[in-house]
Every structure is written in structure tokens, then in C-alpha cells.
Amino acid sequence: MRWSTVALLVAPAQAALRFGCSTLSIQRLDPVVEPGNAPSAHIHQIVGGDAFNATMNGDIGEQGACTTCTFTEDFSNYWTAVMYFKHTNGSYKRVPIMQNAALPNGINGGMTIYYTQKDFNSNGNQKIKSFPPGFRMTVGSPGTDSLDKAKGHVGLRYVCLTDKNTRFPELPDFPAKQCKGGIMTVHHFPSCWDGKNLDSPDHQAHMYSTTKEAFAEAGPCPASHPVRMPQVAYETLWDTTQFNNMWPSTGQPFVLSFGDAKGYGTHADYMFGWKGDSLQRAMDSSCMFNACEGGKPLKSQAVAAMNKCAAKKIVQENIDGWVSKLPGQ
């Protein structure tokens, strides 16, 4: 994401994290929305700590042995629905993800994760409270079924990539044309907390979003949700280019793993798992991006170690070849 040099002049400065997480697992599990179900209703792309399972409770930061993320103290889990290509013969194939241009070379697919202060152009100057152990949330909904509703989910967008550095324009649904560099999905989570609940029945009511379009500064938190927490966002780059020679004569061929051929229902899940006070220390520091690595203030690891970490495969099914129907559908 773009970052203005003006950010360096803001005082007091607070941290902005941008880091990569390689692929942890691709399977039908969702411990937030469908705890205990193995398999869950649709397949997800998952990164983060290796404690990921059908059921997850307690302090996740104390449960993992490794993480696919740059920071070794981050055992959080981050996941989104998978994108599929639908062939004109009716079969489907999973679209692989690729690393962001801003990240070190060699990351196995993965996502780019952000923890920022208030937007993506300035570092912010207010106290940011870390998420507490046991915290979780979702953003978006697979039930979103119209373009108007999709437009209402501000911060959930697609970008048709010319290359990996493309960031505009942001679209509320799938691009209608072939994209030279692939398709990026962007998920901005709400950052205002009610200060009480680690979760809520819909996994969203305990949070409130003041996110605005693109890189505009987020608004202030309301009295009902007064605690400002980090602005978490995911960027996921899908390598759709390998399907360009199979593009249909009409329409666009991509579909999300729960059967959404418009892209309206893009959504993502977050489960906090930073170890001890590591995220709070980072938010209280003045580091930005890779300057936060190497113990300044966060411990970090090399790409090889990130790629080596994996979660246990609970649901056994074909996720890599051509399939006659979407897994679970």
C-alpha cells in the first residue's frame, strides 16, 4: 500500500506494521463462524499460527509451536474465502495466491497483513490498545447478494492488477475483464471496540467500523465503541493470469468458494494470537514496516522458517486439481 512521507513527520509517532504470512493451510475449517465443524461449509485460505483447528479457545498466543508470519510472536490466524476459476465445461480449479511486491522474495503464497493507526497514509497520534487474548472478529458476509449491499461494505474491495504495485481503482465486485497482473482482494476490519466483549453472536457487533474508502483517514470512534484498536487489513493477491487463455466469450469466470460469482460476499476472519504484550509494545513504538523487525521491537524470522510452518490437515479432500463442484457446495 502507498505510504506518504508526511507520515514520518507526525508526532508522537506510533507503529505501523506491514508484514507477510506464508500459507499455513487451505481447508474447510472456520473456528470463528463454525466452531467444531470439520469440515466447515466452504474452503478458506489460512495464514498464521499452527494451532489453527476446528475449535480454538483461550489464549491462542500460548498454543502454537510456529507461525507462517514474519513476526515470531504472532500466532494469530487470518483467513478468507478461496477464489476459484470456473471453466466453460463446468469444472472448477482453485486460484493460487502470490506474494505482494513489497514483501521479501520466496514467501509461499500468503497474505500481506497490516496493523496501522488510523489509515494508510499517516502513522497516527493516538493511543492504540492491543486486542486482548481470546479476541476474534469477522468482516463482510457471504450472504451479501447485491451490488448496493457490497458497496456498503466499505473497505472490502477488489483491484484489477496491472502489476503487483497497482492499488486503484477499488471495485466492490469482481473485475469484468482480464487483469494483466491478477486480482487483489482487500479486507479492512473495524477498529473501534466496545471495550467489553471478545466476540459477539454475529462476530461483528462488538466492533464498529469508521473506515472510509481507499486511503482516506478513518473517522473517530463512537461512544458505544470507544476503544481505538489497530486497523487490521489483509491484502491477498490471486494469480488469475494462468487462466487468461481459458477466458469465456461472455461474463467473468471467477467464483468465491461458497458459490458467489459476483464477489459481493467477500469476507474475512481474524483471531488474535500475539504472544504476551508484543503487539502492545509494537503499537507503542515508533517503528514502521520492516523497521519493526529484528527485535526493534518485534522478533522476526526468515522466509524459510515461515514457509516451513504448517497446520495439521483435518479435512481430506482434493483442493488442487479440477473438481466438478466447489468443496462443500
Rank of each mutant, 00 (worst) to 15 (best):
31 P>Y: 00
55 T>C: 06
291 A>K: 12
238 W>S: 05
62 E>M: 14
270 Y>P: 01
227 V>Q: 12
214 A>W: 11
23 T>C: 09
78 Y>S: 11
160 C>H: 00
16 A>T: 12
36 G>V: 02
274 W>G: 01
284 D>E: 12
66 C>S: 05
159 V>I: 15
295 G>H: 12
292 C>K: 02
115 Y>I: 08
304 A>Q: 11
4 S>I: 07
184 M>C: 10
160 C>S: 00
138 T>S: 13
10 V>Y: 02
79 W>L: 10
314 I>Y: 13
267 H>P: 01
324 S>V: 13
94 R>C: 09
290 N>G: 09
25 S>D: 15
88 T>N: 04
203 H>T: 11
194 D>A: 08
303 V>L: 06
88 T>M: 05
148 D>P: 00
154 V>S: 02
116 T>V: 09
55 T>Q: 08
272 F>S: 12
164 K>P: 05
14 Q>T: 13
286 S>R: 06
107 I>H: 03
8 L>E: 11
140 G>H: 01
29 L>I: 13
169 P>Y: 02
108 N>S: 14
236 T>Y: 08
326 L>K: 03
178 Q>R: 07
46 I>K: 01
55 T>L: 12
16 A>W: 03
205 A>S: 15
283 M>G: 00
261 A>D: 15
272 F>W: 07
83 M>K: 07
183 I>D: 01
155 G>A: 14
200 S>Q: 08
183 I>K: 00
66 C>Y: 04
243 F>S: 03
19 F>T: 07
228 R>N: 13
245 N>T: 15
161 L>Q: 06
16 A>Q: 11
146 S>H: 01
167 R>A: 13
91 S>I: 02
150 A>M: 00
136 R>Q: 10
265 G>T: 04
327 P>Y: 07
309 C>I: 02
259 G>S: 12
72 T>E: 06
280 Q>F: 07
73 E>K: 11
93 K>P: 01
150 A>K: 01
286 S>I: 03
311 A>R: 01
273 G>H: 00
185 T>S: 14
61 G>F: 02
50 D>T: 10
174 F>M: 01
144 T>R: 02
100 N>Y: 10
215 F>T: 09
326 L>W: 04
180 K>Y: 00
3 W>M: 14
255 V>F: 05
257 S>Q: 08
53 N>D: 15
228 R>V: 10
130 S>K: 08
16 A>G: 12
130 S>W: 04
121 N>W: 14
91 S>A: 10
114 Y>H: 13
232 V>I: 15
312 K>P: 06
219 G>R: 09
252 Q>G: 01
288 M>H: 15
105 N>S: 10
94 R>N: 05
95 V>C: 03
313 K>M: 08
322 W>G: 08
324 S>C: 07
99 Q>M: 14
277 D>W: 05
30 D>Y: 03
216 A>L: 15
234 Y>D: 05
64 G>E: 00
247 W>D: 01
171 L>E: 00
279 L>F: 08
305 A>K: 14
285 S>G: 06
238 W>I: 03
325 K>P: 08
325 K>T: 11
